[in-house]
Amino acid sequence: MHRYTGSDRLLVLLIVALAGIGFLILVGPVLVVLVTSFTSSRALRFPPPGLTLQWYRDLFDPVRSSQIHVAAGNSLLVAALTAIVATSLATAAALAIARTRAGWARFAEGGFMAPLVLPGIAFGLAALMFFSWLRLPPSLALLVAGHAMIAAPFALRTVGAAAAGLDPALEESSAALGAGPWRTFRRVTLPLIMPGVAAGAFLAFVSSLDNVPVSLFLASAQTDMLPIRLWGMMETALDVRVAAASGVLVAVAFILLLVMDRAVGLARRMSG
C-alpha cells in the first residue's frame, strides 16, 4: 500500500497491535502448557519454581497411570476407525457431488455439512438415547458411529475441494481405454484426489481424538476416552499429570502438523 497520512498510520498501528495480541493469545497458551508440564511444583504456579521430568515419569508409569493408558488406547483406536469410515463415506459422496450440477447435490451437500453447526451436546445426548432405545450396550463401535457423523463433514470438505479440480477427461480416457470403474478409481481418480483424501482423513482423525460432546454421553467405564478422563482429572483435585499429558498431545499435534503440511499442504487446505 501507498503513502499513509497521519490517521492512516494510526490505523495501521492499531491493526498491527491488535494482530499482535491475537497472535500472542493464539500461541501463548500452547507454550505455557509446555513449560508447565516440566514444573517441579504440585501447584500450578507460573513460572514454575523448578524443572523436573517427574510428571512425564508418572504419566508413563504403567501401574499408576494405567487408566490413562487404557483411555488413550481407546481414543487412538476409535480415531483410526473413525478416520477410515468417515473418509470412505465422504470420498464417495464428494465424487458424486463434484460431478453433477443436479439440484439434489447442492441439497445433499448442505445436509451432509449439518453436523458441523448443530451443537455437539444435543447430538451426543440424542445418540445416547438412540442406542439405549435399541438396547445396545456401550461399546467402541458405537463411539465410532457417533464420531464418524461429526468427522465426515471435515473429510467431505477437503475431498470435495480436490474432486472439484478433477478433469473429467482423464477418467473418460481411462474408461475409453477399457478400464473398469473400479480400476479407473484406483489407478486414476484416487491418486489425483489423494492429497484431499489424506487431509480429510487427518482432520477426521483429529476431530475424533478431540471429541468431547459425543464421548461424554457414549463413553462408559469400559470404554473410557482420553479427553473425558483428562476432564475428570481437571475437575477433581487438579492432577499435574494433565500438564504432562497435554505436553505429549501438543508435541504430537505439532509433529503431525509439520508432516501433514509438508505432505499435502494441510494448513492451506484448512484455510481454503
Partner: peptide
C-alpha cells in the same frame, strides 16, 4: 497460518487446561 492451525489440532482439553494455568491465582 501455522499459528491459526496449531491450536485447532491441540485438544480442547489441553487448551482449557492452559487457561487454568494462565488465569489461576498463581
Amino acid at each position: 497460518l501455522m499459528a491459526a492451525v496449531l491450536p485447532l489440532l491441540t485438544s480442547v482439553v489441553v487448551r482449557t487446561f492452559a487457561w487454568i494455568v494462565i488465569l489461576g491465582r498463581e
